[in-house]
């Protein structure tokens, strides 16, 4: 087993006294797919937001790639190789698919704004390099036919795929997916699962995802973390989690 890429230790987060996350610790190994599951309001999205610095935890540390981080800012997280998608798609709706994917590469761009504006120096060559990489991601996720479509006009399932493309364009080391399959039909879920597995295998990306479809989670992930009311109630392989009595209680209820 490889060493953990991401380790959360004793993370707690509250919003004006309402506890969202209480003392959560777990580790995600390099190259694995880790699923966060739990009922609505269990704190899954909040946890993702803590990992990439949208929320600051009240207490606890994040150890990412061997560095202990107390607070993380979103752009700092991006620079360290953490990319993410959002539960309700956060694409740039007025821009084309290609432009959206290219924005994902913004941290790789060489050349100052002046060089870009005047189309001199490093800018012209760099644009071609970025375009090439963006096209590779577009090919990978098979969205070539919509390359020049305005994102706001595309159907929901495709937008989800474009958002994954934008995240992948950043060449992330850690990819956070917040309900990548929400609202999809069976075929779309199968496609998206395929893309997630391919991402892990081709790029070696470590993936943390939130998903409600237990069937998908069990098939897709190497590691499952179960949350309920902001607390961790299960952590292990899909098989272990499936047999954990606390998890069964949270999901199915117990007779008291």
């Amino acid at each position: 087993m490889s060493s953990p890429l991401l380790e959360l230790s004793h993370i707690s987060l509250s919003f004006k006294g309402v506890k969202a996350i209480t003392d959560i610790s777990f580790a995600v190994n390099e190259g694995e797919i880790c699923a966060l599951i739990g009922p609505n309001g269990a704190g899954k999205s909040s946890l993702l937001n803590v990992i990439n610095g949208v929320y600051q935890p009240d207490i606890g540390d994040i150890i990412y790639a061997g560095t202990r981080l107390r607070r993380m800012q979103p752009h700092a997280a991006a620079r360290r190789g953490i990319a993410r998608t959002f539960q309700n798609i956060a694409l740039f709706k007025g821009m084309s698919v290609l432009d959206n994917v290219l924005t994902g590469r913004n941290l790789k761009v060489r050349g100052s704004w002046l060089e870009q504006a005047l189309h001199i120096g490093r800018a012209p060559g760099d644009e071609v390099i970025q375009r090439k990489r963006a096209e590779e991601i577009i090919d990978f996720l098979r969205i070539q036919p919509w390359r020049n479509s305005i994102v706001g006009t595309l159907p929901y399932g495709l937008q989800k795929r474009v958002e994954l493309a934008r995240a992948l364009a950043a060449e992330p080391r850690l990819l956070l997916l917040d309900e990548p399959m929400a609202g999809m039909n069976h075929e779309e879920k199968a496609d998206m699962s395929r893309f997630i597995l391919d991402t892990q295998r081709e790029f070696g990306t470590t993936i943390v995802l939130i998903e409600h479809d237990i069937g998908v989670v069990m098939n897709l992930s190497d590691h499952v973390v179960v949350l309920d009311y902001g607390k961790k109630i299960g952590d292990g392989t899909p098989q272990e989690v499936r047999e954990n009595p606390d998890v069964i209680a949270a999901y199915l209820g117990t007779s008291h």
Binding site: N52, V54, P74, H75, A77, A78, R79, A83, R84, F86, A90, L91, F92, K93, G94, M95, D99, L102, T103, G104, N106, L107, V109, G111, W113, Q116, A117, L118, H119, A123, E127, Q130, R166, A167, A170
Partner: peptide, 26 residues
């Protein structure tokens, strides 16, 4: 030329959704 360059894309990203723009590092 500016609006089709990286700078133009940053502008449009901030216009369309500035929180997402910050998260991807703009």
């Amino acid at each position: 030329n500016i609006v089709r360059s990286e700078l133009g894309r940053h502008w449009m990203a901030v216009r369309d959704m500035d929180t997402a723009a910050a998260v991807i590092g703009i």
